[in-house]
Nucleic acid binder design. Structure first.
Lengths: 247, 247
DNA sequence: AGGCACTTGTGAACGAACGCACAAAGTCAG
DNA sequence: CTGACTTTGTGCGTTCGTTCACAAGTGCCT
């Protein structure tokens, strides 16, 4: 790679950790995916303009985002793909392994367990639980479905840090409480309801129905028109509002 | 009611339609769900404080959000649940039926087809398509899986307005193009990739892997701490960034 | 009728995020 | 070595979103 640069490996590991904006954090995974894809295509260096296009954002925004991680990138050249992949991964905490438990082995739970994207980036699904007795001991994605009564034991034993809720809304709060009591500190909630958790626990919610309703709104009032600008624009996905709840 | 105001029933249907903030639109479905739940429990009137708690937001934000729809609500009393449900539904465009096609009948596609939340609010899944020949003609959620070669015909014939992509990333762009060409103007994308679409088409993206990575980031740096405030706070779900892409 | 307690709706202050545009910093050719 | 060209990193003005605090409106009780 660039010969003039000293030990490319370390290069000012000054981490301005004090506060990466939530909006930026939400975009880092997108950049990471774009970079990974580029790397697979044999690209070794990329400019902010190219990467921005791949990620579907503006180049200025991308540069500002990356500048929050530190001053990687070489003026006049661009960013070294592999190096940037590593830096973003490290910042997101993907260099360590996260142990995930999925609660609910219905259609959604099974889909999640089979989803390749989980395993690919430092996330290991270590357990899949359900309340329905006829599902128990079935094998899904190489994992046996466990009885939900074992939840506390499994979470402690497997050192689960992240819990994924793929259950009906009515059961979600109770199961969430149990997971939190057992030591889980991050929850990804697919159930269509608001969860109450203590302050040290982080919840993110994904709601299919909500997404459809937002689409319906925009379609109703003139099909995404209005702003209509020319260039390749953003793609909405996910907002800054990372928030917690205190109990 | 107020003597100065005309007929209570219509009650100033002055729709300040010119621009509801995206952030507000993203929260309306949450309010709607909370209201529906309250209605089912027999509650007829609710204050902004109570509703805000149910929805997991601050009461000031809730009031401002609702004020963008118009002046429903009665000072000293609160909001009439049923009336507000109707108003939000109307604003979101849920009073009409939206016809949805799901492309990809893998684990995720089947989960989506079976998801009750779709049908419950004006969304009708009219078709489920897949490329895998061994899935075709299987019945899922009362619908036969159709060959993806029929995509254009089905979308035109069934007047599909919203397309849901639940396919691998590599196939997503192509299928998206075909859906758009066939007349779809809103796309909900579950494939982990950025879609390029013409300016009149709206895309929303849901990415499970992204959500996990955001959780990992926050967990890594102190487990959702930092802000830690006392009251019941927000729950992150979905951002304002409603955006379109122009081709 | 009048006062009191309660709740909405909103003006205004604050803060976060975006995009522009440019200086600093580097590369490459000659 | 010099000079032209490329691309990053960032200061700044603007826009968008959130929060505070309060006036105005409503119902209830005396």
């Amino acid at each position: 790679m660039s010969p003039s640069r000293p030990a490319g490996l370390v290069r000012q590991a000054r981490t301005p950790r004090q506060g990466i904006p939530d909006a930026t954090v939400a975009r880092l995974p997108v950049y990471l995916r774009a970079l990974t894809s580029l790397a697979e295509h044999g690209v070794t260096t990329v400019s902010s303009e190219e990467l921005a296009t791949s990620a579907g954002v503006g180049s200025a925004k991308l540069r500002k985002d990356l500048s929050h991680l530190g001053s990687y990138g070489t003026r006049g050249v661009g960013y070294e793909v592999e190096y940037l992949v590593y830096q973003i991964s490290r910042e997101l905490g993907l260099t360590q392994d996260w142990r995930v438990a999925i609660v609910g082995a219905g259609n959604l739970g099974r889909a999640l367990a089979n989803y390749g994207g989980f395993a690919s980036r430092g996330f290991t699904v270590v357990a899949l639980l359900d309340a329905a007795t006829d599902l128990i001991d079935q094998e899904v994605a190489g994992l046996p479905v466990l009885a939900v009564t074992e939840l506390e034991r499994v979470i402690a034993q497997e050192q689960v840090q992240i819990g994924v809720l793929a259950t009906p809304a009515c059961a979600a709060q109770d199961l969430c409480d149990r997971m939190v009591a057992a030591g889980v500190t991050s929850v990804l909630n697919f159930a269509p309801c608001v969860l109450n958790v203590p302050g040290h626990v982080m919840v993110r919610k994904v709601d299919l129905s909500t997404e459809l309703q937002i689409l319906a709104f925009h379609q109703q009032r003139g099909a995404a028109a209005g702003l209509g600008y020319g260039g390749l624009g953003e793609q909405s996905q996910d907002g800054p509002g990372a928030a917690e709840v205190a109990g």
